[in-house]
């Protein structure tokens, strides 16, 4: 390779990374400029290969130089990156929890098939997300007025420790009712159907004896305690560090107990109900684990924001 070949190759390598419309022009200009520049620094008229190489290294890698000539629009804009990361992570975590729940609750061949489909779905979801964000960026560049920022549209500042009493009361009532139904589903259906519960329905919701004697008391006991903590926090009107940490720790414990409940043996006598229940218990436990991790992370990052709290 001659020194001139090297300059030509370099100009070509830079130009090939640019839009078609400017390639030929930049290649010719860059070649002419580099040629002249190298001629000027070569002492005896004919530049050596080593000299050309040194000058080109100083000029920079072709991909970087091409970016200096033309910076293409990003696939995901900087302003959208945090939201994209959150959504992508949320989808991947959600699908992982779903796959785990299916794996724990379904028979092996079915769960393997479903997990395989979920794996495909996760790639598809990420692909769709990427296309959506690319389209969002393109629309923002094309129609900046559509995305004009207005202070009035900013979300209200929320005190994370403040508890909405009506919402908390609804949660406590719904949680208590759900727990009561969970403790005795047959009695609930009996009440609902005016004492005419079909035997098949009663069989479908009959708990496994071992579950009732070993695992149920612990799970239901912990759920009751967590409802009590929520009720106490509601009465106070805000979370305190102690009640928040207690609720967080208890959520994690309930999630771990839930996994143990699913893995240790049947919950219901009937296989179909058992499978469905295990799926939902595992799914809720997985989501709870993620929720605990996110809240714990937020709490750690927040440090001691005492200056933000109302006095």
């Amino acid at each position: 390779m001659t020194p001139d070949d090297m300059i030509q190759r370099y100009a070509q390598a830079v130009a090939s990374r640019l839009p078609h419309a400017m390639r030929a022009d930049v290649r010719a200009e860059l070649y002419a400029l580099l040629h002249e520049d190298i001629q000027a620094v070569s002492t005896n008229g004919a530049p050596t290969l080593k000299l050309v190489e040194d000058r080109l290294i100083a000029f920079g890698p072709p991909q970087e130089v091409a970016l200096r000539y033309h910076r293409p629009a990003p696939i995901i804009e900087d302003v959208d990156t945090p939201l994209f990361s959150k959504l992508a992570l949320g989808f991947v975590l959600g699908l992982t929890v779903l796959a785990l729940s299916i794996g724990l609750s379904s028979p092996k061949p079915l769960s393997a098939q479903l997990e395989e489909r979920l794996k495909d779905a996760s790639f598809m979801v990420l692909g769709v997300l990427l296309v959506c964000f690319w389209a969002l960026g393109a629309l923002r560049r094309a129609q900046p007025k559509l995305f004009a920022w207005k202070p009035a549209k900013l979300p209200a500042v929320r005190d994370p420790d403040l508890i909405s009493r009506p919402l908390a009361l609804s949660a406590v009532l719904a949680g208590s009712s759900g727990l009561l139904i969970l403790m005795n589903p047959i009695a609930f259906f009996d009440l609902l159907l005016d004492g005419q519960i079909p035997s098949m329905l009663a069989y479908a919701f009959t708990y496994d004896h071992q579950f009732l004697s070993e695992r149920a008391p612990l799970l239901w006991g912990m759920l009751t305690v967590s409802l009590l903590i929520l009720a106490l926090a509601m009465l106070e009107g805000r979370w305190r560090p102690m009640s928040r940490n207690l609720a967080l720790g208890l959520s994690l414990v309930i999630a771990l107990i839930s996994f143990w409940v699913v893995l240790a043996g049947p919950i219901f006598v009937a296989a179909t109900t058992d499978q469905a229940m295990k799926f939902w218990v595992a799914l809720i436990a997985g989501i709870t684990c993620i929720d605990v991790w996110l809240k714990w992370r937020d709490q750690r990052r927040a440090g001691d924001p005492s200056y933000l709290k109302p006095r």
Binding site: M22, V26, R68, H70
Partner: peptide
């Protein structure tokens, strides 16, 4: 530097 100036002219 050449690598800075020449692309700048284009921009």
């Amino acid at each position: 530097e050449e690598g800075t100036l020449y692309p700048l002219l284009r921009r």
